[in-house]
Design a protein around this nucleic acid. Structure first.
Length: 270
DNA sequence: CACGGATCCTGATGGC
DNA sequence: TGCCATCAGGATCCGT
């Protein structure tokens, strides 16, 4: 479900409401990607100070330590006031006096991990190699190009790997490469600076718009308050194999790159 | 060490 | 209707 815009929209939908909340209790359903790191009982009594985001991770700052939450492929968070029994796919819950935070994740590729601090080995193992945040001033065209120059893999896979820039998932990677007119199979280090500049602009524009409009409606996304996204920009290539390119009419191609589907127009993208 | 492939898990969908 | 194969928004781990 979530690429960076959806994670950010989720964060915005509950961050201010959970800030200052004291944890009454916590519980786990089925195991997620990694163990929590501490027994759930040890979370009781701690206070949630703030919710930040790094890449596709949400960081819940506690008065002592932090929780790292990742939504994986199928995860979503809800923050509600009404208690109810954990559903089949609800695998983590924080009960606070300001509301109940619940992680719903059918495929369980998501994660909830406790770390004593952001600098701790536990946290750095997950966050340490992440690339620059695309919606900050740190995402700058020249260093982006320099980062690409060091990679010999196809540009699509370099974007997905998240070590140059974070947050661009499979859908937005396809869309952004279409908007920049770049073929997904092109080696990252072969991009000229002008073309990297176009890609840089496309990433900023598409991700920022998606956040502003409440997340993508390409799939069934809703935020932690249960509100659906209104991202109007329809996909140009993603999920459109065989259909006419919006630019030139050529049928959109679908190929496989690293076990993921890639969609592109072989006329518009070079 | 940079790269590519296999892998975790469940559900939806389409062909026969 | 059932059975099987394929595909799904992610990212780590492991072998080369």
């Amino acid at each position: 479900m979530p690429e960076l815009p959806e994670v950010e929209v989720t964060r915005l939908s509950f961050a201010s409401r959970i800030a200052g909340a004291r944890i009454a209790s916590a519980q786990m359903g089925k195991p997620l990607r990694w163990p929590l790191g501490v027994p759930v009982q040890q979370l009781a009594g701690r206070v949630v100070r703030a919710v930040r985001r790094r890449g596709k991770y949400l960081l819940l700052d506690l008065d002592d330590g932090l929780l790292l939450i990742h939504l994986g492929m199928s995860g979503s968070l809800s923050f509600t006031s009404s208690p109810q029994a954990l559903g089949k796919h609800d695998h983590f819950e924080l009960i606070t006096h300001q509301g109940i935070l619940r992680l719903h994740d059918p495929r369980r590729f998501g994660a909830v991990v406790f770390a004593p601090s952001e600098d701790s080995a536990v946290a750095q193992k997950l966050l340490g190699k992440l690339g620059v945040e695309p919606l900050t001033d740190a995402f700058e065209a020249r260093s982006f190009h320099a980062g690409l120059k060091q990679r010999h893999s196809p540009i699509k896979q370099v974007l997905l790997a998240g070590e140059v820039v974070v947050g661009v998932g499979n859908i937005y990677a396809c869309e952004v490469l279409f908007l920049a007119g770049i073929r997904p199979t092109l080696r990252a280090d072969r991009l000229s600076f002008p073309r990297a500049l176009k890609l840089h602009a496309a990433i900023q524009k598409v991700l920022a718009r998606a956040v502003a409009q409440g997340g993508s409606t390409l799939k069934d996304f809703s935020n932690a308050s249960g509100e659906a996204g209104h991202f109007q920009l329809e996909a140009h290539v993603y999920g459109r194999a065989g259909l006419a390119c919006h630019g030139c009419g050529t049928p959109i191609k679908m190929i496989r790159q690293g076990q993921r589907s890639t969609f592109f127009c072989r006329t518009c993208q070079r």
